[in-house]
């Protein structure tokens, strides 16, 4: 090991304690002095740890900054309360709540808003026929479900297919999805997309339920499910009517 090699080796083994380092150091005063110097530098370094005292202005600025920070945080906290009632929910929110609660039977439509007296000049002609239409729908569904089980008992339902009977009853009553959507979009345009969505999902529900009843005519659960699907749709129409009335 020569002097240069020894110096390079000090990066890894700083105290020169490895055998080949020791061998070189024994014979080389230069390198021994170097190792001693480096040791001294390293051990003196700790004296620098707390060597300096910061000027009092450092604490002054910290104090000012802390106070400013506190003031800002207080301002934020006191302004936060103004956010409490800052936002108005979209009408969609109440609509969804209303649908859910009616489906659970927890609230009923306000009776007073539904006048049964026909008014010839009313622009609410659509709303007037909505009441009987919804009723017809429910009756039709009831008839369908009863007919269906009866038909099943008599094993003669293959030709008549009562599902289409129920649908045609509804159609006769003038109850169709396009009318509803058109009316909603005229009276409460903001709600149109919501109703279209709801209609689509309730129609799918009805289709599924019908499929189940057709596949398992004796299944009580499937029949109840179909009835509920129709009730849901009727409720949707009822809701639309309530909303479009003044």
């Amino acid at each position: 090991m020569n002097c240069v090699e020894l110096q390079e080796s000090l990066a890894e083994i700083e105290d020169g304690s490895r055998a080949d380092q020791r061998a070189h150091l024994k014979t080389c005063a230069e390198c021994s002095a170097l190792v001693a110097d480096l040791n001294l530098i390293a051990s003196s370094a700790i004296d620098l740890r707390e060597a300096e005292e910061p000027s009092p202005r450092v604490w002054n600025s910290i104090e000012i900054a802390v106070r400013q920070l506190e003031a800002e945080l207080n301002l934020i906290a006191s302004s936060a309360i103004e956010l409490r009632e800052a936002e108005e929910p979209s009408p969609r929110v109440w609509n969804s709540i209303e649908i859910a609660l009616r489906q659970e039977g927890l609230i009923r439509p306000p009776r007073s808003s539904r006048s049964l007296l026909p008014s010839l000049s009313s622009r609410w002609a659509w709303a007037r026929w909505m009441v009987p239409a919804a009723a017809v729908l429910l009756i039709a569904v009831g008839v369908y479900v009863r007919q269906h089980s009866l038909a099943q008992q008599l094993a003669t339902d293959l030709a008549t297919h009562p599902a289409s009977a129920a649908v045609s009853d509804v159609a006769i009553a003038g109850l169709n999805d396009d009318d509803l959507l058109q009316e909603v979009s005229e009276q409460t345009p903001a709600m149109k997309a919501q109703y279209a969505d709801n209609l689509r999902s309730v129609n799918e529900y009805i289709q599924d339920a019908k499929g189940n009843v057709d596949a398992n005519p004796n299944d009580e659960e499937a029949r109840r499910s179909l009835l509920e699907a129709y009730q849901e749709k009727a409720m949707l129409f009822e809701l639309a009517m309530d909303r479009t009335q003044p």
């Binding site: 620098l48 740890r49 707390e50 060597a51 300096e52 005292e53 910061p54 450092v58 604490w59 910290i62």
Partner: peptide, 11 residues
Amino acid sequence: LYDKHKRRVYS
């Protein structure tokens, strides 16, 4: 806390 640690941090 500042008084206790200021020298070390400042140094």
